[in-house]
């Protein structure tokens, strides 16, 4: 291909990447090292607010941003080095907890609490997603031809449903007097409050994620199964290999690149888990790193938002994903290297 043609095809995508990925990323990176603050002054203000019959007026010292002649807030921007990272990581509180030998205290710091859950969540759902996806793929592959269509459709449904809606529908099954909880209560003749237990919510969140993502693994593996060498399979049968041995020695090795691919995608997605927290309102018990970033970025009623800490938190999440991916990426790289 001529360079010009190549460039013409690639340019739009590169421009988009620059505008929508590279530029925001650089901004986030810079914002995590600087803090922009309004310049504030203390003024005595009388505020009169509505009561039912008459007003209450109070005079108090208020901290207000200074406005310039044009009526805009005066702000200052300062480079603060690693300060926002220290704040997100809660290094001060962590030092205290360590000095007292209170290890559990560390898990009360938002970041570490979120990291603990996010890692457990990611690492436990990973084998379940791959295992379940593979199981469905093999089941569908062996199903009668007339059944395949409907089975594929039903298996894909959880993947098609909008994430938050999916999470909410599972929440409604279990929270309060949800159908499942009500049935369990009747069966066990006791009172069950799913949402009053951190671990129960944690299990539900993982259940939801596996339910939601397994169809993706299934589709990929099912496609892979169509390319398994039938000769190898037949010779394995002649050699006396049973079902399990054929799966272990023929099918899984053949699907290995796809398994790694699914694992990569899942690690990236699960580490950025967010909709589970919203869908299951789990903030009181479990939070994720992505939710932490979101919470820092959301303005409160007074309009304050912690942009610098949110940026630091986002950068830390990215670093976390990269660290998680390294073993898998190394393996892929080695495989390619070995072959060539």
């Amino acid at each position: 291909m001529k360079f010009r043609t190549f460039a013409a095809f690639v340019a739009p995508s590169i421009v988009m990447m620059l505008i929508f990925i590279a530029f925001p990323l650089v901004t986030v990176f810079l914002n995590s090292f600087r803090i922009t603050q309004p310049v504030v002054e203390q003024v005595e203000v009388e505020t009169c607010t509505a009561g039912f019959l008459e007003q209450t007026c109070t005079t108090e010292i208020k901290t207000q941003p200074v406005l310039d002649a044009a009526g805009n807030q005066v702000t200052t921007t300062e480079w603060v080095g690693w300060l926002s990272y220290e704040r997100v990581l809660g290094l001060a509180a962590m030092g205290e907890a360590l000095a007292e030998g209170a290890w559990a205290g560390i898990l009360n710091i938002d970041f570490w609490k979120a990291l603990r859950f996010t890692l457990t969540f990611t690492l436990i759902t990973l084998p379940l997603v791959i295992g379940l996806g593979l199981a469905i793929a093999i089941a569908v592959n062996n199903a009668a031809r007339s059944l395949k269509g409907p089975v594929i459709f039903v298996s894909l449904l959880p993947f098609i449903i909008t994430p938050v809606i999916g999470a909410l529908s599972i929440r409604w099954l279990f929270y309060g007097d949800g159908i499942v909880t009500a049935l369990l209560e009747q069966w066990l003749a006791t009172d069950i409050s799913v949402a009053a237990n951190g671990w129960a919510i944690e299990i539900l969140m993982m259940f939801y994620r596996v339910w939601h993502v397994a169809p993706f693994a299934f589709v990929i593996f099912y496609a892979g199964l169509q390319t398994v060498n039938q000769d190898t399979l037949e010779s394995a049968i002649i050699d006396g290999a049973n079902r399990w041995e054929r799966l272990k020695y023929v099918i899984v090795p053949h699907l290995m690149p796809l398994i790694i691919f699914v694992a990569l995608i899942h690690l990236m997605d699960a580490y950025r888990a967010f909709e589970e927290v919203v869908g299951f309102s789990s903030q009181a018990y479990r939070i994720t790193l992505q939710w932490l970033t979101y919470d820092l970025l959301t303005p409160d009623d007074a309009g304050n938002r912690a942009i610098s800490r949110a940026s630091a938190s986002a950068m830390l999440t990215m670093v976390g994903i990269v660290i998680l991916l390294i073993p898998l990426l190394r393996r892929t790289w080695r495989d390619h290297h070995g072959k060539s």
Partner: peptide, 19 residues
Amino acid sequence: TATAQPAPPSYPSTSQMGL
């Protein structure tokens, strides 16, 4: 509630309260 004595305060509209 609004006419009780002593009356409850208004929710404060300050930056600090948001935080």
